Simulated assay, not measured.
Amino acid sequence: MGYKTIVVHVDEAPHSAARVLMAADLALQHGAHVIGVALTGVSRFLYQNEMVDDEDPNLALHLDVLRERARRALAGFAPQLHALGVHSVEERVLDDEPGAGLALVARHADLAIVGQAPPDGRSGSPAAFPAEVLTESGCPVMVVPFTARPRGSISVTPAGVASPGAPAPGRHILVAWNASKEAARAVREALPLLARADKITLAMIDADLRPAAFGDTPGADVLAWLARHGISADTQVRQTARQGLLKRPGDVGEALLMLAGETGCDLVVLGAYGHSRFRETLLGGVTRTVLEAMTVPVLMAH
Rank of each mutant, 00 (worst) to 15 (best):
L84Q: 02
R188T: 14
D53S: 15
V156G: 04
V286H: 01
L63Y: 05
A109S: 11
L245W: 09
L28I: 10
D25R: 14
Q236R: 08
H82Q: 11
R171K: 13
A184C: 08
V7A: 07
S137R: 04
V141Q: 01
R185C: 01
I35A: 04
A75Y: 14
R122I: 08
D221C: 04
A207C: 14
P79E: 07
M1D: 13
L74I: 07
A13V: 09
A131Y: 01
A38K: 04
L46P: 11
V89Y: 01
H9K: 13
V269E: 02
T235C: 06
P169W: 00
D64P: 03
A103W: 03
V105H: 04
Q29G: 09
L21V: 07
S16G: 09
P158K: 13
G101R: 03
L63D: 08
A301V: 08
T240W: 02
V114W: 01
R171L: 03
A233T: 10
A18M: 06
Y47Q: 13
A207K: 01
A272P: 00
E280V: 10
G271V: 04
P192L: 10
E91W: 04
A197W: 01
G264I: 05
P211Q: 12
T263S: 14
D96K: 07
L194S: 09
A131V: 03
L259I: 09
L246E: 15
A23S: 11
R238F: 03
T157L: 12
V8F: 02
D198P: 02
V7R: 04
E12H: 15
L59M: 13
